[in-house]
Amino acid sequence: MEKIILDVDTGIDDALAILLAVESGRFDILGITAVNGNVPLDYVIKNTKKVLKHTGKESINVYKGASRPILIEPFHEYSVHGNDGIGGALSSIEVDSDDVADMFAPDFIIEQAERHQGELTLIMVGPLTNLALALRKEPRLAKWIKQVVVMGGLVSEAGKGNTLPTSEFNMYADAEAAKMVFHSGIPLKLVSLDVTKKTFLTSEDIEKLKGTHYYDFVKECTAVYRKYSEENYGVNGCALHDPLTVGVVLDPTLVTTASYFVDIETKSELSYGQTICDFGNLWNKEPNVEICLDVDSERFISMFIDTLKNTIN
């Protein structure tokens, strides 16, 4: 099984990504690292532990990471994820958010990367603060990691961002961290809004989970997200940004990719956090990111539903 660390800022789609990673049965999950993002860090930890308890995988350690971005003030997305980050779901599950593994998340990433050189995949579905801090402390990390698969950015659909017209939330939430990671030489695959916005989990899809362990949770936690999507995009659905990122590790053929040089804007008020892809090689720089150009969305949605359907109430 592939060794992974899942780095999350657990809002709704992070929670669904955890379900997919756990229930796929194809990962050796060394740990889950938490980072400030969709909601403050304490909520991220609480939500992550609730989801793990719901899956029966409480033995997976959660590591506390960065509580704020490197330079800017924290920015959260309550309008999409609800006041608690998971749409009020799992309210009956009690967890202790102080009961976390006794190691700072960036240090855990360094430790595991050194121990499993060439074998470890990082799946990053939140702001890249933890990885940036790890790289700053141990630059050799870039050589130790097998691959880093990142949910973030917008490369070919400029103007269709979800935070600024040019920018996706994870990049916007800590653009300085993203810039450090993109310039580190670490092997990166970017699963951007260009493809994730094509993977909508509709209310009809959710009904296919009826009778399974996760039906109530998926229906309840996505309600606020689906309402937001309906009001803003006219579709009652939930874009599976983070689950697709896990899916791409499970089956790389879900996406069509190509490698280009990509940089991160950190200075402009109009485009802070923009992922700028040099499609025409105007900068004459070596590619540093494998970007996703297209996705087999129907096949991925089927994968997601089928994986969760295997858990019967």
Rank of each mutant, 00 (worst) to 15 (best):
N162R: 04
A177V: 13
M151L: 13
E207G: 06
A178W: 12
I186T: 15
A158M: 10
Y215E: 06
G185L: 00
K143M: 07
E119W: 10
L164T: 12
K197F: 06
L90M: 09
E119I: 07
D194V: 11
G85M: 08
L90G: 12
V195T: 10
A132K: 00
V224F: 06
D99R: 13
E94C: 12
A105V: 00
Q147C: 00
E168Q: 05
Y172E: 03
E114V: 11
L133I: 14
I206C: 04
A113E: 01
G153D: 00
A101R: 04
I123T: 03
C221Y: 10
Y215I: 03
Q117L: 11
G185K: 08
Y172V: 01
L90W: 11
N162F: 02
G153S: 03
P106I: 09
S91E: 13
V191Y: 06
V149Q: 10
L90R: 14
H213W: 08
L135M: 15
K227I: 00
I123A: 07
K227Y: 02
I86E: 03
K227M: 03
S192C: 08
E168D: 00
E176W: 04
S203H: 05
V125R: 11
D96H: 14
V125K: 08
L154T: 09
A142H: 09
K137C: 07
D216Y: 10
Q112Y: 02
V191S: 06
I86K: 02
V148A: 09
D205F: 03
S167F: 04
G159E: 00
E119M: 09
